[in-house]
């Protein structure tokens, strides 16, 4: 069995995957190759065959539809970073500009980021806050799944054997929607998030009509904060920053690791949240 395939149509890709369930899809390779290097250093060569998705037509690119945007799973972060998109994508674009360095952004894909399912994946919080859905394809057909149901745990997803992620569907929010993403890391570039915060606010006449908030790197799966979202609804934008309280972070379960302590993560999440809700955004949204 050759260790590498680069099919040129989805059908072929799905057939291969169905025939060899051990095959690993590969998009930009920016998660796959580092993982291989780490294993190889300790004489643990990975021999899973690779299914390179990069030649599949229609996997990359952003299209606007009446009620949503469709972002191909194979869309690279550099494309998202540089795309002219409505303001509610500012969070996702902010994340794009901060994923690795330019040479990672130019190859790494959105789909790879989500399928890799790292707790610190920067693509997840902005898309959770946008209520994104995923389009998954297998030989039998396609299905849609909310991102929140797709991410199951640290490196665990609801991707079924034989499935490929083909697109991310981002429903258009209500009027006056703006978004923000912020992440905290330990150096200026090439940082994995200690904490990341994504906020999407819809507002009318200076009042929040809907707030959607997600936090990354503080739990096995990035989490929305429903209680905080409920508390923000109806408030004047100018008051938003004062709302987040430690109790709102109940869904989070940060861990101690080499990058930061759990207590620090929890604290920093609150600080970042308050800042993300601070007037500069609110003003812009008003």
């Amino acid at each position: 069995m050759p260790a590498y395939h680069r099919p040129t149509c989805l059908r072929e890709a799905l057939d291969l995957l169905a025939a060899v369930p051990a095959m690993q899809p590969l998009a930009g390779g920016t998660d796959i190759y580092p993982a291989r290097a780490a294993a190889e250093a300790w004489l643990q060569p990975r021999d899973r065959p690779l299914l390179d998705l990069s030649a599949l037509p229609g996997m990359a690119g952003i299209a606007e539809r009446p009620d949503h945007h469709r972002i191909g799973a194979g869309t690279r972060w550099a494309t998202i970073r540089d795309a002219g998109l409505p303001p509610w994508f500012d969070g996702l674009r902010g994340a794009a500009a901060w994923i690795g360095g330019r040479q990672v952004q130019s190859r790494a894909t959105l789909g790879g980021n989500l399928c890799n399912a790292s707790p610190a994946a920067d693509g997840a919080p902005p898309l959770l806050a946008l209520g994104a859905e995923l389009e998954l394809a297998c030989r039998e057909g396609r299905r849609r799944l909310p991102l929140s149901s797709f991410l199951l745990g640290n490196r665990r997803t609801a991707l079924a054997p034989g499935e490929i992620m083909t697109a991310v569907i981002v429903p258009k929010p209500g009027r006056g929607a703006t978004a923000r993403f912020d992440k905290l890391g330990s150096r200026a570039f090439l940082v994995i998030s200690l904490v990341s915060v994504a906020v999407v606010i819809e507002a009318e006449a200076g009042r929040i009509t809907r707030a959607r908030i997600a936090i990354g790197a503080c739990s096995a799966v990035p989490q929305r904060l429903p209680a905080l979202e409920a508390d923000l609804a109806g408030l004047p934008l100018g008051l938003a920053a004062a709302v987040p309280e430690p109790a709102h972070l109940a869904p989070l379960a940060p861990i101690d690791d080499v990058r930061a302590s759990a207590a620090y993560r929890r604290h920093a999440a609150l600080v970042l949240l308050r800042r993300a809700l601070a007037p500069s955004l609110a003003g812009a949204a008003a």
């Binding site: 390779g29 920016t30 290097a37 550099a78 040479q103 130019s106 190859r107």
Partner: peptide, 9 residues
Amino acid sequence: VQACACLVP
């Protein structure tokens, strides 16, 4: 466009 050659098949 710059890319890490170590990550590109």
